[in-house]
Design a protein around this nucleic acid. Structure first.
Lengths: 344, 344
DNA sequence: GTTAGCACTCTATTTATTGGAGTGCTAACA
DNA sequence: TGTTAGCACTCCAATAAATAGAGTGCTAAC
C-alpha cells in the first residue's frame, strides 16, 4: 500500500499532468506545491511510484506521466467529490432553458452542456419507451379529400400524418372507422402491434383500403419511433482543444468512429448497467478508443433505464469535474422527467 | 483578352492545382498534358499569365498557383457543365431514402449529401413558411383531467401538446370552447396571430383561464416554429480531409464561425437572391471565411424561396463538381417538394 | 531518512548543409 | 517572330550537426 506522502505526490503529479499535459518533474512538484521536502526526496518517491507501476517516463530525461493504473487509483481512491460553482450552475440552467421544445431538445442540450463543461466529446443515448400503450386514433378533417390521422398513446404522445380519404366520405363515417380500429387496438403496447396483428385487423375492419394503408404506415412509423434509441453527440469540435488531438490524423480517426451511430450506441449500451462507470484506456474493449477514457452515467426512472450519458476524452481527463457535472445533470434531468411524468 | 493557348494552359494549371493542392510548374503541365509545346514555351505563357494577374508564385522557385482572379475567370468562362456518374446518382438516391420521416430529414440529408459528394462543409438553410393559415383547434381527451390540444393549419401541419383541463369538464364543453376559438382565428396567418390578438381573444372567449393559457402557449410555439429559419450543417469533419486545413488552428477558427448559427444564417441569407452564386475568397465580405470560397444555390417553389444550400471550402475547390451536384440536388428537391405540395 | 551536488541522458530547438524543383534569361533555330 | 534547349540562379524542404535545457540517478554528507 502507498503511504500518505506517496499518495499525495501521486495525486499532485496526476492533477498537474491533467492540467498541463506535460510530463511532471520532481522540481515542478517541489516548486508548485509546498510539501516541505526537497526535489531529491520527491525524486526518490517518484522512482518508487514508477516501480510500483503508477508512473511512466516517456524517456529518461523527461518528467513522469501517470499510468493507466494511476488514473484508476486516482478515480477510485484519491478523487474527492467536488461541487459546481454558482457560475457553472447558472450557465447550465440557462443552456437548458435556451431551447426546450421537445424531449429530444433536452437530450441534445444535455450533450451540449456536457461537452462544453468538460471540453470533451459527449454522448447521450436516449432510450425510448417501447411500452407506450395505444389509446385511440382520430381523424381531423382537412379538406374534401384529405384528413389528418392522429394516433394517441396513453403517455400523451400524438403522432399525425396527412391521409387521403375517399372523396365525399362523411365525418361520421370516418369517426365510425376510427372508433372500430381504436377498439381493436386499445390497450396494446405499441411494440406488440405487429404486422400480423395489423393484417388480421385488415381483414376484419377495413372497409376502405387506401385509408387503411395510410393508417398502417402511420402506426408502424410511430412504434418504430418509439422503439428507437437515439444518440446525441456533443462537442466533437472540443476535441481540437485537447493537446492530445493536435494531430489531425488522430482527430479524424476518432471522429470516424463517432460518426458510426451504431458503434456509439453499442459502446453506450455496453456500459449501461452500472450507475457510474469509468473506463480508462484499454479497460475499454472497443477498438479505436483504447487510448481514451470514458465516464458514463446511466439514469433511471422507476427502475427503468431512461438514458445514459458519457464523456469521452484523453485518459488525461478532468475526472473530478466530469463526475461533478454529470452528477448535477443527473439530478437536473431527474427533476425534469419527474415533472413530466406527473403532468401526464 | 487571353488567346486560346493561354486559356488552355490556365485551365490546366487550375485543374491540376485543384486536384493536387501543389503549386504547378511548367514541366508538370508539359509532361501530364500533351500540348505539343515545350516547358520553356509554357514558362513564357505562365509568365504572361502572372503579369495579367491570373497566377501567383508562393516564392521564386516554386510552381504557380491560381489567383482569385483566375478562379473567377475559371468559373465564369472555362468551366464546362458536367454530369454526375450513375454511381453518384445512385448514391444520392440511396442517401435520401435512407432516412426520410420529416421535412427536416430532407434538409439534413441534403446537407449530408452535399458535403459527402464535395468533401467540403455544406450548409442548408430551410425557410419556413410563415404564411401557414390557422384552421382550427381540437381537443382529444386523454384522461379525466388532461387532454391533447391539436392545432391544425391548412397546410396539413398539426402541432399538439398536453393540457390540463378542469376536472369533470365534459367533452361537449371542450368541443364548444374549441369551436369558438377556432371561429375567431380561422383564416388568419400564423404570423399575424399576435399577442394583442390573443389577448383580445382572451377577454372575449375564455371561460377557462388555465385551459386558455395552455392554448396560447401552444399556438405561440407553433407560429414561432413556423417562422423559424433553420440551419443544417454537414461535413464539418470533411474539413480535415482538405490539406488547407491540416493546421488545427485554422480548423478551429472556421468551426468557431460555423458554430454560430446566427452568423451562418446571415451568411446564407446574404446570398439568397440569385439562383447560383459563387463567391471566391475576399469577394465574400464575412470575416473569417475570406480565404474560402462558397457556392450557393437558392431554390424556389412558386416564386417563393424555400431554402438555400451552400458549400464552403478552400478557394481551391472543385467548382465543377460542386455545381453539378447542386444542380442535381436542386432538381431532386424540386420533384420532392412538388409531390408534397400536390399531396396537400 | 533527507538532501545537496554533479555527472549523465535524452529531447527539442537551433543552425548549417545539401539536393532538387522551378524559374528566367540568352542565344540559336525554324 | 515564335519556339526551344541550355544554363545559371533562387529558394525551399529535407537532412544532418550542434547546442541548450530539463530531468534523472547516484553518491556522499548530514
Amino acid at each position: 500500500m502507498l503511504n500518505d506522502r506517496k499518495k499525495k505526490i501521486l495525486q499532485l503529479i496526476i492533477e498537474d499532468y491533467i492540467s498541463t499535459a506535460e510530463p511532471v518533474g520532481s522540481r515542478t512538484i517541489a516548486r508548485k506545491y509546498d510539501l516541505g521536502i526537497s526535489p531529491a526526496t520527491i525524486r526518490n518517491e517518484m522512482s518508487d511510484l514508477e516501480l510500483l507501476g503508477y508512473l511512466e517516463q516517456p524517456h529518461t530525461s523527461a518528467g513522469r506521466i501517470p499510468s493507466a493504473q494511476a488514473y484508476r487509483f486516482y478515480v477510485d481512491s484519491l478523487i474527492e467529490p467536488g461541487s459546481l460553482t454558482d457560475h457553472d450552475m447558472a450557465l447550465i440552467n440557462s443552456w437548458y432553458t435556451e431551447r426546450r421544445r421537445s424531449i429530444d431538445d433536452i437530450f441534445q442540450s444535455t450533450a451540449k452542456i456536457l461537452s462544453r463543461m468538460t471540453q470533451n466529446v459527449s454522448m447521450v443515448l436516449a432510450n425510448k419507451d417501447a411500452a407506450a400503450v395505444f389509446r385511440y386514433i382520430k381523424f381531423l378533417p382537412l379538406d374534401s379529400n384529405h384528413a389528418i390521422l392522429c394516433i394517441v398513446t396513453d403517455d400523451g404522445n400524438v403522432d399525425n400524418c396527412v391521409v387521403e380519404i375517399p372523396l365525399g366520405m362523411r365525418p361520421e363515417e370516418m369517426d365510425y372507422l376510427a372508433g372500430r380500429i381504436s377498439r381493436e387496438l386499445e390497450g396494446k403496447e405499441l411494440s406488440e402491434i405487429s404486422d400480423d396483428l395489423l393484417s388480421a385487423l385488415h381483414m376484419d375492419v377495413a372497409e376502405d383500403k387506401v385509408l387503411f394503408t395510410s393508417f398502417l404506415q402511420a402506426i408502424k412509423r410511430m412504434s418504430r419511433k418509439q422503439n428507437e434509441q437515439r444518440v446525441f453527440l456533443g462537442g466533437t469540435k472540443q476535441l481540437l482543444n485537447q493537446p492530445e488531438f493536435r494531430d489531425v490524423e488522430r482527430v479524424k480517426s476518432l471522429l470516424g468512429i463517432l460518426e458510426e451511430e451504431k458503434v456509439v450506441r453499442d459502446l453506450l449500451v455496453a456500459g449501461e448497467d452500472s450507475g457510474l462507470k469509468i473506463t480508462i484506456g484499454t479497460e475499454n474493449k472497443f477498438t479505436g478508443i483504447q487510448d481514451c477514457s470514458m465516464v458514463q452515467a446511466t439514469y433511471r426512472l422507476n427502475g427503468k433505464i431512461v438514458g445514459t450519458m458519457a464523456v469521452l476524452g484523453p485518459t488525461r481527463m478532468e475526472y473530478g469535474k466530469v463526475i461533478t457535472v454529470m452528477d448535477y445533470l443527473h439530478k437536473y434531468l431527474k427533476t425534469m422527467f419527474e415533472q413530466d411524468q406527473d403532468k401526464e
